[in-house]
């Protein structure tokens, strides 16, 4: 590999960041019932870098995802793409959502080809490119089925293919693998890293899965449980090109243990919180 020297440490560290999240703050509601979902979160992502944001359920990850994607307007702080503050969804960004988001009235191939249809790509090229990404997410042979005939994990893979098909420069994904079993998750992770490396795609992955984050990322942003702040940013110095085999290495285990220590603290705070809320609820 010609880029071996830079590839071993992930993205070249001297580069100007492509995506900057600067003191982003978001509160839902007002007064005593207000929930601070994202509390002055700052980090940046360099071109071609793969960054994961990890944190316990309810810590504000999806809120942050929606802000970066330009879907939520009312927040404090700045999100910059190529040094410009975003105003609404940015054309360089492709998003994969946490919830099921296939179009139930389109079959698999028409779902995946949808963004190309919007771009006015002609039909034969559209179908060619859609086929390529359907194959990549392991759904070859299912092209003509409607989403209702697929499993939850298969539908999620359709949405991933639909976002990848337009080859966005910046890829935002909110727990895209949550509905998948561990094996499919690892293999699909390989495919995603491969495309990401081939296209030098800047990727921000939201997840609550620790092994997935370490397997895929150059850096991991660990968030605290409410209010969602950045607890720590960990560089993952595992060699690239990387495959799912990396999960059996010592270095991998070391990173997982290190981040788990941070995460456990936050997750147990989250659990205690919801338990006391439940007790409070049943008493009142």
């Amino acid at each position: 590999m010609t880029l071996a020297s830079t590839a071993t440490t992930g993205a070249p560290s001297g580069q100007r960041p492509q995506l900057v999240i600067d003191k982003v703050f978001k509160q839902f509601g007002v007064g005593p019932g207000a929930v601070t979902a994202v509390d002055h979160v700052s980090f940046d992502v360099k071109p071609g870098e793969f960054v994961s944001v990890i944190g316990p359920s309810g810590c504000g990850k999806s809120t942050l995802f929606n802000i970066i994607g330009g879907l939520l307007d009312e927040y404090e702080g700045d999100v910059l793409i190529e040094r410009e503050r975003i105003a609404g969804p940015h054309k360089a960004v492709g998003m994969v959502f946490q919830e099921e988001s296939t179009f139930p009235w389109r079959n698999v191939i028409d779902n995946v080809a949808f963004p190309l249809e919007l771009q006015g790509v002609n039909k034969s090229e559209r179908l060619d490119r859609a086929h390529h990404f359907i194959d990549l997410v392991g759904l070859k042979g299912f092209e003509r089925l409607m989403p209702s005939a697929l499993s939850g994990g298969m539908r999620q893979r359709v949405s991933i293919a639909r976002t990848l098909v337009s080859q966005p420069q910046i890829l935002l994904m909110d727990e895209p693998f949550a509905a998948l079993d561990e094996q499919t998750r690892l293999l699909l992770g390989d495919k995603i890293t491969q495309i990401q490396q081939d296209l030098n795609q800047t990727t921000l992955l939201i997840t609550h899965n620790l092994t997935e984050a370490v397997q895929l990322s150059d850096r991991i942003v660990v968030m605290t449980y409410r209010p969602g702040k950045v607890k720590r940013i960990v560089d993952i110095d595992l060699p690239r090109p990387r495959s799912s085999d990396v999960v059996s290495s010592d270095a991998f285990g070391h990173y997982v243990a290190e981040i788990w220590a941070d995460l456990r603290e936050e997750a147990s705070r989250g659990m205690a919180d919801s338990e006391s809320a439940r007790r409070g609820g049943s008493r009142g």
């Binding site: 960004v93 492709g94 959502f97 919007l118």
Partner: peptide, 14 residues
Amino acid sequence: VRSVLINVGRSLKM
């Protein structure tokens, strides 16, 4: 209409 479907459309700048 589920808001995630609308968000897909918005993210594609429809």
